[in-house]
């Protein structure tokens, strides 16, 4: 009798699990602790969400840049050899071989903060303090003649800064400009006038 009851209970539990498997969670993983989320969730989006409290100017930034960035990016952010150039290139985007820099190309200043904070300096990523990052971003803007050397960049005024090429982007429009045109039945014979 006991055996019989057991099997009924077992069958019931099995059914319950089977029914919920698709609709409900598997119960895998564990809750992330706030300290863990804080350690990894460092990205800063274009709305400025995640931008830390702090400030810095180009004068301070120049010193840090010279020590930690200039070996690749040059003393004036002009770039050495094949390493990325961070300054210059204004009005070259519609020329042959445009020079795309933070000043000439990048649409959001938040991107510079986000990238420098998380991924730079090259070989020692994530080692800069929040104020150091503000100062470096300020120095890059200064190198692009976009601010004065004593302009203090901070979480307060960061989002107010409009990048020169902010309006230079369109969302993927290949559907209208290309796909519609390149979907004709392809030519098989006498396809070129110059035959």
């Amino acid at each position: 009798m006991l055996k019989y009851l057991k099997s009924i209970v077992f069958a019931f539990v099995f059914c319950a699990v089977a029914d919920s498997a698709l609709a409900e969670k598997l119960g895998l993983g564990r809750a992330a602790l706030p300290a863990e989320v804080a350690a990894w969730d460092l990205d800063i989006n274009a709305l400025g969400e995640g931008l830390p409290f702090g400030s810095g100017d180009a004068l301070v930034g120049e010193e840090i840049f010279s020590e930690k960035c200039a070996a690749c990016h040059g003393d004036f952010a002009e770039g050495i050899d094949n390493w990325p150039k961070l300054a210059g290139g204004v009005d070259t985007l519609d020329h042959e071989d445009p020079l795309k820099t933070v000043g000439s190309y990048w649409p959001y200043l938040t991107t510079a903060y986000d990238y420098i904070k998380r991924s730079m300096p090259y070989g020692n990523a994530g080692s800069l303090t929040d104020d150091e990052v503000y100062a470096i971003v300020a120095y890059i803007l200064y190198s692009n003649d976009l601010i004065e050397e004593n302009f203090v960049l901070s979480d307060d005024n960061f989002l107010a800064f409009e990048m020169p090429n902010a309006k230079g982007f369109v969302v993927d429009d290949r559907g209208a400009t290309e796909y519609a045109i390149w979907s004709d039945v392809p030519c098989m014979k006498n396809c070129k006038d110059t035959c």
Partner: peptide, 20 residues
């Protein structure tokens, strides 16, 4: 996020200087 890899890189600049 508009991270570096989706703004300064992996965007396609057209002849008129506008980028996709």
């Amino acid at each position: 996020v508009e991270s570096r890899e989706e703004t300064s890189k992996y965007t396609d600049t057209l002849a008129d200087g506008v980028s996709r």
